[in-house]
Design a binder for these strands. Structure first.
Length: 704
DNA sequence: AGCACGCCGACT
DNA sequence: GTCGGCGTGCTC
């Protein structure tokens, strides 16, 4: 075997916690040219000639003294790398550092994070990209070339020399040229002179209150003003020669920002990275981000991990939206990933929203984020209305307060009116007429509901029809509607407002945009269509139902749903908030969600609940959980709730700890998980004992 | 997941 | 002494 004297440090792509560290291999001479940091490799693993996939993290000179980066060097005989899968270094040093840190702070695996960062390879796409790079290098070998020949030259490196940055000249906007987009000097005008520009140039960290109104795009749809702000932030970043990453909770939000960028951003400068798109498209967008030219990267929560040439800004829209938290281990929230990446890269950070998450409030109070508000303090006219039955019998049936009904009737003469409701469907919950208990599916115990007015009741979980249902409690056979859905509300409103066009928008009937004609729009929270020019009135019904959920976050969530809907109102239009009083109503009518977030945070401090502290759940066999908890005894600022039994053989404990102890707690628990995973074996011969493995989950939003 | 290695009991 | 069963831990 030919050796080059170089050692490759490789991360094995495996979910096993005991493999989550670097392995050393030698580099055969014939692979030396391609074996650079970041490439995918195949390496022999597990003795008998089998190979594993991995990423080459770094190449070190075996002869040179220890560089210091390597932990506990391996001193046996090194196996050679089997193959370099492709010459494209997909895992940039910056993203590797980020993935390692994100995994470490939650006792997780780096390869689980890398799976979010690096999409599956597509050979055809990659070949086309490499060819395009080579062709571009041929045509224009200058350093400012947006498509350089060698991807290696793309490594951002904090000290990238100035001449490599493209000049301030801006290519033509991609949008239609006959309609002027917002003039450049109007950029950020709502925020006062230079505040946001300066933040980008000086790489500040901000919590920015979005302007709660709509923007009519020339020859296009209306979009939220916030989307315009994000697009302007991204373009301003690009003009400083740096990359901007925009992280949006869902694709409807991404579409709005995309519309703004179509008009504002230079042609070809935007990459949309989104797990929703087909794999080849996803990989193509990923490779574009890998190029040496700064870009605008637009995507969902995993966009925070995109490779970026000279990162200048990470901006998140609506960080309180639960879609920002990752459902896959190690469950990192994109806000946390953004905070870590901001710290590592020194880029600017913007959390933009109509409301304020309690987590963002904590960062503001720490001084980590600076607050920015629009200079002109115009906000929606929100009117909290205690319930007062309407005179109109139909409005009463549709549970619309009297004042709201009158407002809606007037507004419907001018344009669309939004009615926000809690539940989709027609009647999502049925109850027994006799005993009033919830009607349950006889097969799976799921809740029964009606899909439409005359439909047969069916289970909302398993779909089974409940044609001849009998109540398990009282043997009754007659249903009563317990919860009213958007469909039923629409039916009732149809009677209350005869002759008005009724539009339903929910998960099953998604509607993105709407004209300015009068219509009554019934929408579930988060599914509100965007009307040209804004709604002439907004009715926020079902306030009590939204607050009835059993969660620490109900208040914060409700404020988010309401303020996002209120921001769709036309200037001067009334926003009627039904059945809600107290601090929430005050936060809405004064349009100051910070005050509510601050008092929530104060409560959490009192209770020692997240985000005042961090928390992790530890689940497993009682002995394993006890052993893991014992490891935490020495760490200051840690307390433990439980363990308590959950599903029969397993117990769960909740560990709470100060942010400053996070690394120690994560380190100790990770060590325990590794030990547990290595030891767990099925005993031979004897009956099959299910091997319960120790599970650890940090910062679970469902906790507590 | 396999495979090496080492501890301990049983047999030459 | 040495063979081999099985439990434990490692995989560069």
């Amino acid at each position: 075997m030919t050796r080059t004297g170089l050692v490759a440090r490789v991360l094995i792509d495996s979910p096993l916690p005991q493999l989550d560290h670097l392995f050393d291999y030698s580099i055969p001479a014939e692979l030396a040219a391609d074996a650079v940091a970041g490439v995918r490799v195949k390496v022999p693993f597990r003795s008998s000639g089998r190979v594993a996939d991995g990423y080459l993290i770094e190449v070190i000179d075996a002869a040179a003294p220890d560089t210091g980066g390597s932990d506990a060097d391996f001193h046996g005989k090194l196996s050679p790398i089997e193959a370099v899968v492709s010459s494209v270094p997909v895992l940039t040093p910056e993203v590797w550092k980020l993935a390692r840190r994100i995994a470490d702070r939650s006792a997780g695996n780096a390869s689980d994070v890398i799976r979010l960062a690096c999409p599956p390879r597509q050979v055809r796409v990659e070949k086309a990209w490499l060819a395009a790079q080579a062709a571009a290098a041929e045509a224009n070998p200058g350093p400012a070339n947006p498509e350089p020949a060698r991807p290696e030259a793309a490594r951002p490196g904090p000290e990238r020399p100035g001449p490599e940055r493209p000049g301030p000249e801006r290519p033509e906007p991609a949008g239609p040229s006959d309609v002027p987009s917002r003039p450049a000097d109007a950029r950020f005008s709502e925020y006062g002179a230079g505040v946001l520009e300066e933040a980008i140039a000086e790489r500040r960290r901000l919590a920015v209150a979005a302007v709660p109104s709509l923007v009519a795009l020339p020859a296009g749809p209306s979009i939220g003003h916030w989307a315009q702000t994000l697009a302007e932030l991204a373009v301003a970043t690009l003009e400083t020669g740096r990359t901007a990453i925009l992280v949006l909770p869902d694709y409807r939000d991404q579409d709005q920002v995309q519309s703004a960028l179509d008009l504002l951003a230079p042609a070809g400068s935007v990459s949309r990275v989104d797990a929703r798109q087909p794999n080849p498209d996803r990989y193509r967008a990923f490779l574009a981000c890998l190029g040496a030219a700064p870009r605008i990267i637009l995507g969902n929560r995993s966009a925070v991990y995109a490779p970026a040439a000279d990162l200048g800004l990470i901006a998140l829209w609506d960080d309180g939206d639960p879609l920002h938290s990752e459902p896959l281990s190690p469950y990192a929230h994109s806000r946390d990933a953004a905070l870590v990446r901001q710290e590592q890269s020194g880029c600017a950070l913007v959390l933009l929203g109509h409301s304020r998450s309690v987590e963002a409030q904590r960062l503001v109070e720490l001084g980590w984020l600076a607050e920015v508000h629009p200079a002109k303090g115009r906000h929606p006219h929100v009117i909290p209305t205690e319930f007062q039955a309407a005179d109109d019998q139909y409005a009463r049936a549709a549970r619309i307060p009297s004042a709201a009904w009158h407002t809606a009737r007037q507004a419907l003469k001018q344009g669309p009116v939004l009615v926000q409701v809690a539940s989709p469907g027609y009647a999502p919950m049925l109850a027994c007429q006799g005993c009033q208990k919830a009607a349950r599916c006889t097969r799976c115990q799921g809740p029964l509901g009606l899909a439409s007015a005359g439909a047969t009741p069916s289970c909302r979980l398993c779909g089974a029809l409940a044609a001849d249902w009998t109540c398990v409690h009282c043997a009754g056979r007659i249903f009563r509607i317990a919860t009213i859905g958007a469909g039923r509300t629409a039916e009732e409103l149809g009677r209350a407002f005869p002759g008005v066009r009724i539009i339903i928008a929910d998960g099953d009937h998604p509607i993105q945009h709407l004209g300015a004609e009068p219509a009554l729009v019934i929408a579930t929270r988060g599914a509100e269509p965007i009307p040209a020019g804004g709604y002439r009135a907004v009715l926020l019904l079902d306030g009590q139902r939204m607050l009835a959920r059993e969660s620490l976050r109900v208040g914060e969530d409700a404020l988010r749903w309401w303020s996002n809907a209120a921001a769709l109102a036309a200037p001067g239009a009334a926003v009627m908030l039904a059945e809600v009083g107290g601090a929430l109503a005050r936060a809405m009518s004064t349009w100051q969600p910070e005050g509510f977030a601050a008092s929530e945070l104060a409560d959490r401090r009192q209770l020692r609940f997240p985000p005042a502290v961090r928390a992790a759940s530890v689940t497993g066999a009682a002995a394993d959980v006890d052993a893991a908890l014992a490891e935490l005894a020495e760490i200051p600022g840690v307390d433990v709730l439980g363990p308590v039994g959950t599903d029969p053989p397993l117990v769960r404990a909740i560990v709470r700890f100060a942010y400053s102890s996070g690394d120690d707690v994560a380190g100790a628990l990770k060590a325990q998980v590794v030990r547990n995973a290595a030891r767990r074996r099925r005993p031979k011969g004897a009956a099959f004992r299910a091997a319960p493995t120790l599970k650890v989950r940090f910062d679970d939003p469902e906790l507590l």
